[in-house]
Design a protein around this nucleic acid. Structure first.
Lengths: 198, 198
DNA sequence: CTGTTGCATACATGCAGCCTGTATGTTATT
DNA sequence: AATAACATACAGGCTGCATGTATGCAACAG
């Protein structure tokens, strides 16, 4: 099974194996869902044996967690890259939302992060991932906007969760083939509704 | 295996068996999740054999679909019962939301309808269930409110989906042990924000 | 009206194939 | 030599199907 790759350090061996496992698992989890993907197929696709898989990950779920963790991190990076410090808080929120929807349009992301993720890791598990990567920026944006009196003073954590869920739902619908425009409009409407009426 | 239940019609036999299977499956799916519940255990708990299960349902997923269908129907009934035709559209929406949160507080409902449901049946599958039972009333409420100019004119289907997702997220958070009050406040804030500012 | 006959429905049982996780063996680093 | 990084083999369990059996039902004969 092992190729003629010459002499490599243990660290290099490990890293490459982990990498190949995560990449292969991601492909299959995206194509067929977590439940319908077996570890034999993952190992085959990665060019390794199941022994290697279970050497690096406690179980199939831990491998899935690694895939989700990386995906969430990538999404956060893409958002941060496409983000511009905008004038008003609401515009910043809307633009951040656009960036999120664009990032979530990458194939398989909605299934990994919004369907299988919560079911396999539990909502609490996904919340931890989200707080490390995802809606940390959303929460900070909302906090700043509230302090600047640009949106109404509502419970921060709850509002972050609700808006995040709305964005998630939009990403899911668009990924399922729905027209994106009505969702952008409705999201903008929800956010603009948070502006205080003096 | 068959008890001394006297002579029963075929219809009675079928109905009772299906009933017992659905009830047993619900208990186990709620306790341990869909993935970690096996058909042997379901059949045992229902006092039937796996043969009966596969006679009535095409596969494990079809049994799960039956459980979800019934649960969604029950939730819709409970909401309809606790609903009062209120004065303004926003108040009706907020009260409907309260009823929804109360109904979703029944043990296991969030797992069945909001975690395992979308993962096992797909978001499109759950959308069909929701449209038959769940947010049909939400959509009608929003439609009426828009036509009466009590809330802004936003794309109906998209807005229904986004608000529904926000309510779902609140139900999940509360079920996970979060304080309900901030979520109620934030939800009310979102809805009140939809009132047009002349 | 009753008893029998033939068929359909509602299950029960057994089997084949696959999958997960672990335990144990082997090879490459350090 | 010791340890990390794998490979291989195995045990237990689960799903779905195929086949066997009993019960209900409908029609017809007598």
């Amino acid at each position: 099974m092992q190729q003629e790759t010459g002499r490599r350090s243990n660290r290099e061996r490990s890293d490459e194996t982990r990498e190949r496992l995560i990449e292969a698992a991601r492909r299959l989890f995206v194509d067929k869902s977590y439940a319908e993907t077996g570890t034999p197929e993952i190992a085959r696709e990665a060019g390794v044996t199941r022994g290697a898989l279970y050497h690096h990950f406690a179980d199939k779920q831990a491998l899935f967690a690694a895939v989700v963790e990386r995906e969430a991190s990538t999404v956060a990076d893409e958002i941060e890259r496409h983000t511009t410090t905008s004038s008003t808080a609401t515009i910043a929120l809307i633009e951040g939302g656009e960036a999120y929807l664009k990032a979530m349009a990458a194939p398989g992301r909605t299934r990994l992060l919004l369907l299988d993720g919560p079911a396999v890791l539990g909502r609490s598990g996904m919340d931890e991932v989200d707080n490390r990567h995802g809606n940390r920026t959303l929460k900070q944006g909302l906090e700043a906007a509230i302090k600047a009196r640009q949106i109404r003073d509502l419970p921060l954590d709850a509002l972050t969760g609700l808006l995040g869920a709305a964005f998630d739902r939009a990403a899911l619908a668009i990924d399922a083939g729905a027209d994106a425009e009505p969702y952008r409009t409705a999201l903008a409407g929800l956010i603009e509704g948070l502006v205080p009426t003096p």
